[in-house]
Amino acid sequence: MSIEIRKEIARRLYEEVVTEGRTELLETFVAEDGTDGSRPQASWSNGRKGFQEHVDGLRTSVPDVRATVTDLLAEGDRVVVFWRIEGTHEGELWGVPGTGRRIEADSISLITFRDNQIVNYSVLPDRLTILRQVGAVAA
């Protein structure tokens, strides 16, 4: 698989799966044994089901979520995605009940591929900025 194809799958993960809610694409994008290294392992399922839970949780917390890819870097079987999240905090997020406040923050994700599918996903969101925006942490 070419680096350009990996980058395109990574972009579509954010633009189509996260923003548009097209979770049926996870069947194509994510390996059955894929892992989401972003969340405590005891709290999520493995494979596509775990990715589905991650996306569903985000879209419940921020129903109008918009994920915009701002840059992609790739080498070998890995893609680094720089992306921006925007939306309205309506449901519980990191222990904070919905506030109705707008959030905007940058995130960086590392995606590892095997045989044209994602086998590991890790995201580093700017939690501090988001927690400040929803009033959970003083500015």
Rank of each mutant, 00 (worst) to 15 (best):
R84T: 14
G50E: 00
T60E: 13
A67V: 09
R84K: 14
G76P: 14
H54T: 09
S43Y: 15
V69R: 08
E53Q: 10
V80N: 01
S43K: 15
G47F: 01
W44R: 15
A74M: 13
L73F: 12
H54D: 06
S61E: 02
R48C: 05
Q52K: 15
V79G: 03
V55L: 11
V55Q: 09
G57A: 14
F82M: 07
R84P: 07
H54W: 05
L73C: 11
A42I: 03
R84Q: 12
G47C: 01
G57R: 12
L58Y: 00
D71R: 06
S43N: 15
D77K: 02
V80R: 03
W44T: 15
E53T: 08
F82E: 06
V80W: 04
L72Q: 04
N46S: 11
L58F: 06
F82N: 07
R59L: 06
G76M: 15
S61I: 02
F51M: 09
G57M: 13
N46I: 06
R48D: 01
F82T: 02
S45P: 13
W83Y: 12
D71W: 08
R84A: 11
L58G: 02
G76S: 15
H54C: 06
G57D: 11
A67Y: 02
H54V: 09
I85S: 08
G47H: 04
G50K: 01
V80D: 04
A42P: 00
G47R: 04
D71M: 08
T68N: 03
A74R: 10
T70Q: 13
P63C: 10
G47Q: 03
G50M: 00
D77T: 03
K49H: 11
W83C: 01
N46W: 04
L58M: 07
R78A: 10
K49C: 08
E53F: 07
G76V: 15
A42S: 05
A74G: 12
A42F: 02
V79T: 09
V65A: 08
N46Y: 09
V81C: 04
G76H: 15
E75G: 12
E53K: 06
G76I: 15
V55A: 05
A42V: 05
R78S: 13
G47S: 05
V69Y: 07
E53V: 07
H54M: 07
R66D: 05
T70L: 14
V62E: 00
V80G: 01
L72E: 01
L72T: 04
I85R: 06
V69G: 08
A42Q: 03
R84L: 13
V65H: 03
R78V: 14
G50D: 01
D71C: 09
H54S: 08
D77R: 02
V79E: 00
G50P: 04
R78C: 12
